[in-house]
Amino acid sequence: MSVRYLSCGDTAFTVEFGNEISPEINGRVMALHVAIAQAAAAGTLEGVTETVPTMRSLMVTYDPLATSRAELQPRIDALIARGLPTDMASRRVVIPCCYDDPEFAPDLTEVAERTKRTVDQVIAAHLASPFKVYVLGFMPGLAYVAGLDRTLYLPRRTQPRVRVPRSSVAIAMDMTTIYPFESPGGWHLIGRTPLWMFDKRREQPVFLAPGDSLEFQRIDRKAFDRIARQVEAGAFDWSTLVAP
């Protein structure tokens, strides 16, 4: 598979693996992201400052005072030519989600009506979806999580909300997401997690990472409140979310 190198000025370039969204293409993006991090850590890619994975491409940023595009591109080519694994081992995380409270899930009934299912079927389909974190962006910690069950595909709301509460779990198109902050948003709100996807008090303020496999676990309002109190107090054990 050939890649395209796209110029992003003299401090970055994008390695584009394709013009579509697919697990295979994203797998190669993530593999190069990891391969470059390893090479940089080993000191063989001097001047690379960071890499930004997206659905189908990887942006590589560099310091033009330490290296150059002409020096770097062949080295990236060599990393790709050596062969990138297509099936990267990934972390499996489980996110608790409460679907019960109408305040948490104001769009659940409408989603059920528009997809011609029952509310319980919508929840079951969301719980059964094999999700994967493709990209973080737009705002700190906001993850674009693909893999939504086909029966739930809907375009974004025609009238976006001015205020979506923090930790809302939402769906749109073939994806789900969790809002890290209160913000405007046009996705359908079907639940809420007691977790904060961005918490500046934590040493790792962003919990999700590109490449994570993700599934939701249904909790009731009581469990939600219990976990919410722990998260608020900074006492929640986040390691319990990572499956062995």
């Binding site: 992003c8 970055a12 994008t14 930004v52 997206t54 491409s57 942006m59």
Partner: peptide, 10 residues
């Protein structure tokens, strides 16, 4: 476009 990374000065 399908979203991609944004460099400084893009």
């Amino acid at each position: 476009i399908i979203s991609d990374g944004i460099a400084p000065g893009a």
